[in-house]
Design a binder for these strands. Structure first.
Lengths: 344, 344
DNA sequence: CTGAAAGCGCTAACAT
DNA sequence: ATGTTAGCGCTTTCAG
């Protein structure tokens, strides 16, 4: 039997308004009536219907999360931290991967206009159609962007400081005395990839070793890209003595290619990655990499979004925060490390 | 400005019912009016409010997913496959981790009674309070359980065939001639863990080598458990010549402990894991492990749940399906493997 | 402290 | 083919 607020009210001999007050702990209700209502509620195992509440309050206590993918430790960590923060704040989480560039926008729009959610956390590092983008950033609905492309200025965004991280990585390599530092880039058009590459370039520019085009290889953040990236690099006349992979997955590919090519790390080739995923700790030697503050990004995003929703945080003026990264030293860059690991 | 179906109706000079028909593609509307409505809709960038629709239709096109944790490749794969299947069916996904045993029930109940979702996919391998459990399985709300504890019979459930997988693993080890096969178990009370252990026991029972209590170690599915598990095993008088880890993470821990203890795999110790996570392919030697059909479980769960929701699948009688596993041969069990190319 | 009643935005008979 | 009109289940003024 379907039981609604009216039924509870009837059984308790009060009005629905009173039941509502009791359920929400708002407004004043005499202790006596409260007990009576609560008893009926328990007896019927009654729960408020959130959809109806949502319609009435124009608030669903749900946040939408749209991520480019749902694979990888990186995203799992992100989802995990978002879930934790949302749970702590008593909010529900609606999740979706982009599935496609076009669909990203549609999903977000559906989220925003559909009334399903109170706000959305969006991560879309690939450069998106400016016009469509405007629909989102100007929708006036609470929004927090993660790693937003640089040209998106009119929104609240939290970004991993890719540039800083890349600078730290390459500077470290330079400090070891390497002179032919190659880079395996991330996918073209991807913000994170671009910023990491920019960091690499900037360091070289300020150093006295030249930037060489033949030490740059395009990748796409996959293991395979790292693997073939290194193979390609070593098949050229000028071989690198170090390689900066735009993410750890590709660094892993580099390890594999090195293994297959009898190249020792770090003796013959130094390697530095980016992200500090769990896996990087398992490599032998442990991978030197840039730590991405993923959990921090997730919880900050939720906090910011809830703030915007409640009006405590202004969404009027654009906001862009860079979450700082840090270099995690392993043995792959040439630093002497206690022998401690196992993969490969 | 807030724009609702009434406003669209007004602008198009029709009734809200007609707008609704156009928006839902249901009922008949003359081509002429349809165009007119559509034009107004586009012009206002209007979207139906899903909350209101939900209230009215008593259907939200959203499924709830409650998982024990949101860490690990295992869960990411599961979430990923659920997202894909849901997306394909045009459904939204509300996700939550259990956070705690007690909260699992509450979250599920909230999902079920709150009207937020049309059905839920629940994975709760830890044995749960029978009585509370009943609240869920008997709620009459569409539900699909994943790896449900064996004593939960009155529901629709999809289970990885842990027993079969464990039997295959241990039988394989036996085939190699090992006689002191240890097992590092999963957490007590966890269905998957228990079933895997049962498979191990059953094989030994039917063999002529005895079951030895001192070859059994308790673990909890973490890397650490595997690490210390092996250390403990080798510190005893009777040392194992093979070890079956209840999951790959623990097998990884075993690798680490072996490395630290100068134990060669598989020469000194054979290792077999369970799950076939990405990582297992990267180990040297590659880990022999039981493949868990995670993506299959995810998509089947969505399909089944949608079937139950639509009434195509009966939820009247309990249903329990075992998803078969398969042994993935690596070099860790003693099988001769071509020099492990980890990539392709 | 409590109740009556007007929505929240949409759907779905039921009419016409 | 289109419009009228009750709801869907809850919140929230506004009175009393």
């Amino acid at each position: 039997m379907k039981i609604d607020i009216r039924e509870i009210a009837r059984q308790a001999g009060v009005s629905t308004a009173t039941v509502s007050r009791v359920m929400n702990g708002k407004g004043s209700v005499s202790d006596n009536t409260r007990q009576r209502v609560l008893a009926v509620v328990k007896q019927n195992n009654y729960k408020l219907n959130s959809i109806a509440r949502g319609l009435s309050r124009q608030k669903t206590d749900t946040i939408g999360v749209v991520l480019p993918e749902l694979v990888d430790e990186f995203f799992m960590d992100l989802v995990h931290s978002i879930d934790e923060a949302a749970y702590a704040a008593n909010k529900f989480v609606m999740i979706s991967s982009s599935h496609s560039q076009r669909n990203t926008i549609e999903t977000v729009m559906e989220f925003m206009n559909g009334g399903r959610i109170d706000g959305v956390i969006l991560m879309a590092p690939e450069i998106m159609d400016e016009e469509l983008l405007r629909l989102i950033t100007r929708s006036n609905r609470p929004l927090v962007m993660l790693n937003a492309p640089g040209h998106i200025k009119d929104c609240y965004s939290l970004n991993i400081d890719n540039h800083q991280g890349a600078v730290a990585a390459v500077t470290h390599l330079l400090g070891h005395g390497y002179e032919k530092i190659a880079m395996i880039k991330g996918p073209a058009g991807n913000t994170d990839a671009d910023e990491r590459f920019a960091g690499y370039q900037d360091v070289l520019e300020k150093s006295d070793i030249p930037f060489r085009d033949d030490l740059i290889v395009n990748g796409d953040f996959t293991l395979q890209a790292g693997y073939y990236g290194l193979l390609r690099l070593i098949s050229q006349p000028v071989k690198p003595d170090a390689v900066f992979a735009a993410n750890d997955m590709m660094a892993l590919g580099v390890y594999q290619a090195a293994l297959a090519s009898q190249i020792r790390i770090p003796e013959d080739l130094a390697v530095v990655g980016f992200d500090d995923i769990f896996l990087s700790r398992l490599l032998t030697p442990r991978l030197t990499t840039v730590h991405s503050p993923v959990p921090e990004m997730g919880s900050k995003a939720v906090k910011a979004l809830l703030g915007i929703i409640s009006g405590e945080v202004s969404a009027e003026q654009p906001y862009r925060e860079l979450l700082s990264t840090g270099l995690v030293i392993g043995g792959s860059c040439g630093c002497k490390m206690p022998n401690s690991s196992l993969l490969l």
